[in-house]
Amino acid sequence: MLAATEPLKPLIAVGQVTSTPDKEHNFACCSRLVREATQRGACIIFLPEAFDYVGSSTEETLGLSETLDGDTVQRYSSLARECGVWLSLGGFHERGGDWERTRRIYNTHLLLDSEGSLAGAYRKTHLFNVELKGRVSLQETAYTNPGPAVVPPVSTPAGKVGLAICYDLRFPEMSLALAQAGAEVLTYPSAFTVATGSAHWEVLLRARAIETQCYVVAAAQTGKHHDRRTSYGHTMVVDPWGSVIAQCQEGPGLCFAEVDLAYLRRIRQEMPVFNHRRPDLYGRVAAPQKDPLPPDLPLGHST
Rank of each mutant, 00 (worst) to 15 (best):
T193H: 11
V194P: 11
D168K: 02
A177L: 04
A177M: 03
L138F: 14
A199P: 09
D168G: 12
I165K: 03
G182W: 08
P152E: 00
P172L: 02
V150C: 05
S155P: 02
P157H: 00
V151R: 01
N145V: 13
P146Y: 07
A199T: 15
I165N: 06
C166P: 01
A149R: 07
A177K: 00
L163K: 00
C166D: 14
A177G: 05
G159C: 10
S190E: 12
H200A: 14
Y143V: 13
T141N: 08
T193W: 02
G147V: 06
T141C: 12
A199R: 14
G182R: 11
H200D: 13
V161H: 00
N145Y: 06
A191R: 07
S175H: 06
E184M: 04
L178K: 02
I165L: 06
T196E: 13
I165V: 14
C166K: 05
G197D: 10
L138N: 09
T141G: 11
A164I: 07
K160E: 11
Y143Q: 04
F192N: 02
V151N: 01
V161D: 06
A181Y: 02
V150S: 03
F171E: 15
A195T: 10
Q180P: 02
A177V: 01
L186I: 13
V185T: 03
A199V: 12
G197L: 14
A199E: 15
P148F: 01
N145A: 08
L205R: 02
L204H: 11
A191Y: 04
K160S: 14
A191I: 09
Y143T: 10
V161Q: 04
P148N: 02
V150E: 04
A199D: 15
S190T: 15
A199Y: 13
F192R: 10
V203A: 13
F192H: 10
P152G: 09
V203G: 10
G182C: 09
V154S: 02
Y167G: 05
T156L: 03
V203S: 15
L138A: 07
G197Y: 00
V161I: 09
G162A: 04
L169M: 05
G147L: 01
A195K: 06
P153E: 09
V151P: 00
L178E: 08
S155M: 08
F192S: 11
T156D: 03
M174K: 07
Q180D: 13
G197T: 10
A183Y: 02
L169P: 03
L138T: 09
E184T: 06
V185G: 08
M174N: 04
